[in-house]
Amino acid sequence: MANLLALIQNETLKVWKKRRFAVLLLILLILIPVFVYAQMKIAQNSAEKFNDDWRAELQSRITDNTNALSSERIPEEWKKWRRALVQQLQYYLDHDINPQTPNAVTFTLTFMDNAVTLFIPLMVLAIASDLVSSERSTGTIKMLLTRPVRRWRILFAKLATLTLYVSLIIITTVLICYLISGLVFGYSGWDAPVFVGFQVQGADVDTTGVHAVTQGVYLLMQSGLVWFSAMVVSVIALMVSVLVRSTAASFVTMMATIIAGTILSNMASSWKSAKYLFNVNLEISSYLRGTPPPVEGMTLGFSLAVLGLWGAAALIVSFTVFTKQDILN
């Protein structure tokens, strides 16, 4: 046990000293102000247009989407999505709840929702992709594997380190998002209500299970789900990193897979069996809000199962290969 802890300590410090996390921090500090500024402009525009009346703004979103529904040029899938959206917005309006209260918590929620498919995977890949392959390219893997430590322990230490850093990355993203956007939108909003439990069935939204939670609780749940999908991405990246020699190759492979997933999500409605791919299931946090899934019939349980199976398979491959493979040159 002490042995394993020492290994984890070693791995954690190695990642830290490579300044990967510092780079991520820098990226966040540069990117988030850009988004905050854009969001501020949007908020100013709509406040001017709707005279600070959120009900009018919400109703306008409803009528806009309703109008888009009547157009025959819009594909049927988009219509379904819009119909569900209209019903949800109507539910908010009927209960006199503003779904977009202007504050830092709302901003953070929206940012995380949008970040889960690309931005968060990108950040965790920066660490996950070279965890094993960098040892190979620098040759340190030989030193590592000639120590009197079982190989699975080494990989397990790397996995544990990865888990810790993924958690750290997500919390850091949330915190930076909240702190920076708060400067503009104010730091309140933790207790503002948000509805969860919409059941999307085809074009209809079942509201029987809908209940309100505070945005604070919502943020916690959302981050937890984002964390899970980030973990699956990083476990798969760990496998690629075991299989591929160069860090660049392993990073590009993973990034291509993730990007393919976001493209596929938009097309998956026609290719139903795409729902068994892990990269189409990454957006699990959207189930909370009740956004219609890429393929009809997908649920939180389904996506978790798919992600879980992919993650487990990746772990099995990683450990099998890593403990058996020969290290040449």
Partner: peptide
């Protein structure tokens, strides 16, 4: 951080 994430994940499943 990990514990917070696990709590959030569990909470989301429960909810």
């Amino acid at each position: 951080c990990l514990l917070v994430m696990l709590t959030g994940f569990g909470w989301a499943l429960k909810d």
